[in-house]
C-alpha cells in the first residue's frame, strides 16, 4: 500500500496546491484515505505542507473520508429535485433493506450508504448511484431488485 500511495503522490509536482488532488486520487484508489497515507503524502509535497493541513483537508471536503467504505457505495441524491420526488422515502427504504443509515457501512463490508448533494440529473429524480452506475427514477417497487444485483453473487457484484 505504501508503495502505491507514493506512486499516486508522485503524479503531481511537489507543491502545496496539489494536496487536494493527491488526496482525491488516494481516496479513489482505496475508497478512503488510510491514516498511513498522510505522512507519505506530506513527505512528497515538501516542507510547505504540514500533516495537520492534510488532515484538515481530509475532514473538510466531503469527497474525502478517513473511514473505510463498503465494496459498493450507494449514493442517494438528496438534492432539491430528488428530495421533492421522494429521496427521503428512498433513504428510508434502503435503511430498512440494508440496516444502515447515511454514512454507515454494512457489517459485512458490502455496502455503504451516502447522501450526496445534487448530481445534476434532476430531470431523472430520484437518482441513486451505485458505484459509477446511475439508477434513474428509482421506485420503491424497483429498489429491492437493484440492491439485489449488488449483493454477494449478484450480477453487478464484481
Amino acid at each position: 500500500m505504501e508503495e502505491r500511495i507514493r506512486e499516486i503522490a508522485q503524479r503531481y509536482p511537489a507543491e502545496k496546491r496539489f494536496s487536494l488532488a493527491v488526496l482525491q486520487d488516494v481516496q479513489r484508489e482505496f475508497n478512503y484515505i488510510p491514516p498511513e497515507a498522510l505522512p507519505l503524502i506530506k513527505e512528497h509535497l515538501g516542507p510547505d505542507v504540514r500533516e495537520g493541513q492534510l488532515y484538515a483537508l481530509a475532514t473538510f471536503y466531503k469527497a474525502l473520508s478517513l473511514k473505510p467504505k463498503g465494496k459498493h457505495i450507494i449514493k442517494i441524491c438528496d438534492g432539491t429535485a430528488c428530495h421533492m420526488q421522494g429521496s427521503t422515502r428512498l433513504i428510508t427504504a434502503v435503511q430498512l433493506a440494508l440496516g444502515i443509515g447515511p454514512g454507515e457501512c454494512t457489517p459485512d463490508g458490502q455496502f455503504s450508504l451516502e447522501l450526496v448533494n445534487c448530481v445534476g440529473s434532476c430531470a431523472l429524480a430520484p437518482i441513486m448511484i451505485v458505484d459509477e452506475t446511475y439508477h434513474s427514477k428509482v421506485t420503491m417497487e424497483g429498489l429491492p431488485a437493484i440492491l439485489d444485483t449488488y449483493r454477494p453473487g449478484g450480477e453487478r457484484d464484481v
Binding site: K16, Q24, F60, Y61, L64, N117
Partner: peptide, 23 residues
C-alpha cells in the same frame, strides 16, 4: 482543478483558497 465536494467552494474567495491547496 477538481473540487472536493464543498458547497462553499462555489463562493469566489473560498474557491481560490481551494485552488491554492487550502481549506
Amino acid at each position: 482543478v477538481r473540487g472536493g465536494g464543498a458547497f462553499v467552494c462555489g463562493e469566489s474567495t473560498a474557491l481560490m483558497q481551494s485552488i491554492e491547496g487550502q481549506l
